[in-house]
Structure formats: structure tokens, C-alpha cells
């Protein structure tokens, strides 16, 4: 564990908590893509199957459980409890366009052709693009509430910090995993446009509004 990895995990945790609190406090999930949230639930379910096979550390188990439970809780709040506030007219990205290619790619490019390893790889590929429905929703409506922007910033920072963690581990521990690194790069790049808007607008107190 190094500082980048820890900050990455904490940033991820913060993103999840911010999103759940936003939905809970405002009793609304307007502006949030349910498609992205379903994809994240699929991502963490397929990645953390090792919870039942291997024990790594209390930290590892605790965080995995939080990520899985929070993903399902978010989906529950969006599709059941606060269904009436869900922006489904704008949330039109087709999930199969991301799930199917990720699955095919995981079957083709993986470290080992075993069920757990392919599912892990699939989750890494899918995670890298799972935010697309959310970014698509923001671009369709042309704006995002500040709290949604904070959520996206924390979520985007998480994989960016993991990239630094991988650079560190490469030099310090001679450890690297190309699948995770390439997917992590893709994931972070997808946020670049958003990061730019966040820094130039939201941090200056303005609403995140896309140019018309």
C-alpha cells in the first residue's frame, strides 16, 4: 500500500458516499445515470467474486464489501425507491454496447483463461467505460448539479491516482499489470474533458454547463 493507492481508494469511497448522500438527502436521483450505476454494480460483482475464495486483508475485504453493497444500494434507490425522479428520458445509452465488447475483449485478452480471471478482466474493461452513460447524460442535458460534478471528480480522480500507484509499484516493487494499466489509462482519459470543465467552472463557483 502506498499513498497514491490509499488516496485512490479514499477518493473512490468518497465518490460513492457523495452520490448516496446526494440521492438520499434530496430524495432525488435527477441527473444521475442509472445505466452507469448498473454497470458499476456488474463491475464490482464480477471483480470481487474472490471475496468468497481468498482472504487478503481486513482492509481489502471491508472495501470490497462497501463497494459492492453501495453499488446495489444506489441501483435500488434509483430504480425502486426514488424511481419517479429518475431521468430515464435522457439516460438512453445502450449498456450492451459496453458490456458485450468488454466481455469479448476479456475472453480474448486476459492473463489466464479461467472463470475468475476472465471475470476480473471483464470488470476492469467494463469499469474503464462504465461512466460513459453518465457523461452522455450530462452532455445531453448540457449541465450537471455541483454535487454531481463533485461525485464525478472524485470518481475520476480515483483511477488517476491508481495510475500513479502503478508507476510507483513498477519502480518500487517491480510490479505491473498491463491490463489494469491500459484500462486505467483509458478510464482516466475519458474524464479529461470533464476535469477541464470542473476546474475551470465548478471550482470557481459556477455550475457545470456545457457550451451550447
Amino acid at each position: 500500500m502506498n499513498i497514491f493507492r490509499l488516496l485512490g481508494d479514499l477518493s473512490h469511497l468518497l465518490a460513492i458516499i457523495v452520490l448516496l448522500l446526494k440521492i438520499w438527502k434530496t430524495r432525488s436521483c435527477a441527473g444521475i445515470s442509472g445505466k452507469s450505476q448498473i454497470l458499476f454494480a456488474i463491475v464490482y460483482t464480477s471483480r470481487y467474486l474472490d471475496l468468497v475464495t481468498t482472504y487478503i486483508s481486513a482492509y481489502n475485504t471491508f472495501m470490497k464489501l462497501i463497494f459492492v453493497v453501495a453499488a446495489y444500494a444506489t441501483v435500488y434507490l434509483m430504480y425502486i425507491k426514488f424511481k419517479a425522479t429518475y431521468d430515464h428520458n435522457h439516460d438512453t445509452f445502450r449498456m450492451e454496447f459496453l458490456v458485450i465488447p468488454s466481455l469479448i475483449l476479456a475472453l480474448l485478452i486476459n492473463h489466464e483463461l479461467t472463470v475468475l480471471e476472465v471475470l476480473w478482466t471483464f470488470s476492469i474493461y467494463l469499469e474503464s467505460v462504465a461512466i460513459l452513460p453518465q457523461l452522455f447524460l450530462v452532455s445531453k442535458t448540457g449541465e450537471a448539479e455541483s454535487i454531481t460534478s463533485h461525485y464525478l471528480f472524485a470518481l475520476g480522480s480515483y483511477r488517476g491516482l491508481y495510475l500513479l500507484n502503478w508507476v510507483y509499484r513498477y519502480y518500487a516493487e517491480d510490479h505491473y499489470d498491463l491490463i489494469a494499466i491500459v484500462a486505467g489509462l483509458v478510464q482516466t482519459v475519458l474524464y479529461c474533458d470533464f476535469f477541464y470543465l470542473y476546474i475551470t467552472k465548478v471550482l470557481k463557483g459556477k455550475k457545470l454547463q456545457l457550451p451550447a
Binding site: D50, S57, N60, F67, E117, N165
Partner: peptide, 10 residues
């Protein structure tokens, strides 16, 4: 190398 069963990263 880490395998699916001993990946410590989240």
C-alpha cells in the same frame, strides 16, 4: 504475478 485469487488492489 498476481492471479485472480490474490489481487490486492481494488
Amino acid at each position: 504475478r498476481e492471479t485472480a485469487n490474490n489481487k490486492d488492489e481494488l
